[in-house]
Simulated scan of single mutants.
Amino acid sequence: MSILAWSAIVSLAVWVWLLLGQGFFWRTDQRLPAVDDGRAPLPADGWPRVVVVVPARDEAEVLPLSLPSLLAQDYPGEAEVILVDDGSTDGTGGLAGELAERYGGLPLTVTSPGEPEPGWTGKLWALRHGIALARAREPEFLLLTDADIAHEPDSLRLLVAAARANDLDLVSQMARLRVASRWERLIVPAFVYFFAQLYPFRWINRARPRATAAAGGCVLLRTDTAVAADVPEAIRHAVIDDVSLARAVRRAGGRIWLGLAERVDSVRPYPGLGELWRMVSRSTYAQLRLNPLLLAGTVAGLVVIYLVPPVALMAGAVAGDAPAAWAGGAAWAVMAGTYLPMLRYYRQPLWLAPLLPFTALLYLLMTVDSAVQHYRGRGAAWKGRTYAGSYVSRNGE
C-alpha cells in the first residue's frame, strides 16, 4: 500500500479510538446536575450567602448586556455583586454604577485594585482583590464570572443547588458562546469541541477523575475550598487561569464538575476572523507549556487526525488508490459524525460538520502563530497587557 493509504489507516484508527476511548468527549449531555424542570430544590438548611465577583477591564461594550442579568438574579438567599474595575479606560466602572441605579436588583459594589503587582496576571489580580472583599462578607460560595457572561434569572439558584445536592466544591459551566457571524459559526463550536476533546467532561466529573479543567466564564467556588487551595495566590502567574484554578482546587481535595451551559451565555462578539484568531492564539502556546516539542507534536497530530482524511479521500480517488480513498473517507465520516452533537448544541446547520478539517487547519495556523508571537515578545497579549513565559503556571497547568 502507498504511504498515503497507511497514513489514512492510522488516522482512521485514531478516530475509532477517539470515538470510543476518549471519554465520549463528543457527546453534549454533561449538563448541570440536580435540576428538576428548571427549578432548584430548597436546601434543607436554607440558601447560603453568595458573593458574585466580576473582573472587568474595558468592558463598556458588553456590560449593558451582562451586568443587568446578574443584578436580576432571583436567588432566594443573600447575594451581592462585586465588580472589580481592572484599570479600564472606557468608563467600565462608572457604567456599572449607572446600570445598578437603572435596573436595581442585587447590591453592587464597584472597586479597583490598581495595577497588578509583579508576578500577577491582570484577571487574577482583579480576582484577588474581589475575593478578599467578598470573604469579608463570609459567603459560603463565590461565583466567579466574566464581564461578558449573561445569566438567566435562575442561574445562580441552580448553580448553588447543584453544588449543595452533589457536595461539589467547584461547579463550572462552559457558557454558550455567541454564534452569529459567518466566522463565529465556523470556529466557535469547534473551539468547544476541541476543548472537550482535550478535557473530556465525563473524565472530569467522575468520582475518580482522569482529567481536570474548568471554564473560567462561570465558576461557582466554595469559599472554604478557595482558602484551602490558596486561590488565587497559588495560580497568580497562570495565563490559562481556569484550568489552573481547577487543578489547584483538585490538589486541595475539592470535587469538581464541568459541563455545558443552558442558561449562561457569552455576549462578546467576535464578528471577524481577526478577533477570533486573537482570542485563540493569545494563549494556545501557553497551553503547550511554551514547549517547542509539544508544539511540533500538536501540529503533527492535527495534520494526521484532521487533514489526512480529506486529502487521502480526494487524492486516492483521483489516483485510483482505493485503500487511501476508503480509509480517508471513513475517517472523515467518523470525524464529522462526532462533530454533529456540538453543532446541534449550538443550533447550527449540520452541513458544517464536513468542514471541520478546514477549521482544524485554521486552529493549526493559530497555534503556530501563538508560538511565533511568543518568541517575538508579544505572546499572551490581552487588552493592552502582554504576559511573558514566566506568567505561565509552574505547577504543570
Rank of each mutant, 00 (worst) to 15 (best):
W6H: 05
W6F: 15
G23D: 09
P33A: 01
D37Y: 10
P41C: 08
P43G: 11
A44T: 12
V52C: 13
E61S: 13
V62S: 08
L63F: 04
P64I: 04
P64A: 04
S66Q: 08
L71Y: 09
A72V: 03
E78N: 14
E78G: 04
E80K: 12
D85S: 05
D90H: 02
E98N: 10
R102Q: 15
P107R: 10
V110R: 07
S112K: 11
E117S: 13
P118T: 03
G119I: 05
G119F: 01
W120K: 01
T121N: 14
L127Y: 09
G130L: 08
L133Q: 12
R137Y: 02
R137E: 14
F141S: 01
L144C: 11
S155E: 11
L156N: 01
L159D: 06
A161N: 11
D169G: 14
S172R: 04
Q173N: 08
E184R: 07
I187L: 15
A190V: 13
A190G: 07
P200W: 05
F201D: 05
I204R: 07
N205G: 08
R208S: 14
R210M: 13
G216C: 10
V219C: 14
L221V: 13
R222D: 03
V227Q: 15
V227N: 11
V227F: 09
E233C: 07
V239I: 15
D241H: 09
V243N: 06
G253Y: 03
A261S: 12
R263C: 06
V264L: 08
D265N: 12
L273T: 04
V280T: 07
V280W: 12
T284V: 12
L288W: 05
L288G: 01
P292G: 09
L293R: 15
L293M: 12
L294H: 05
L294Y: 09
G297P: 00
V311W: 02
A312K: 00
L313N: 00
G316V: 02
D321P: 07
P323Y: 00
A324H: 06
A325C: 11
G329P: 11
A331S: 07
A333Q: 09
V334A: 03
V334Q: 01
M335F: 00
G337N: 11
P341V: 12
P341A: 12
L343H: 03
Y345T: 01
Y346S: 05
R347K: 15
R347T: 10
L355G: 00
P357E: 02
P357I: 00
Y363M: 08
L365P: 03
A371M: 12
Q373F: 13
G377D: 08
A381H: 14
W382R: 13
K383Y: 06
G384K: 08
G389M: 13
Y391A: 06
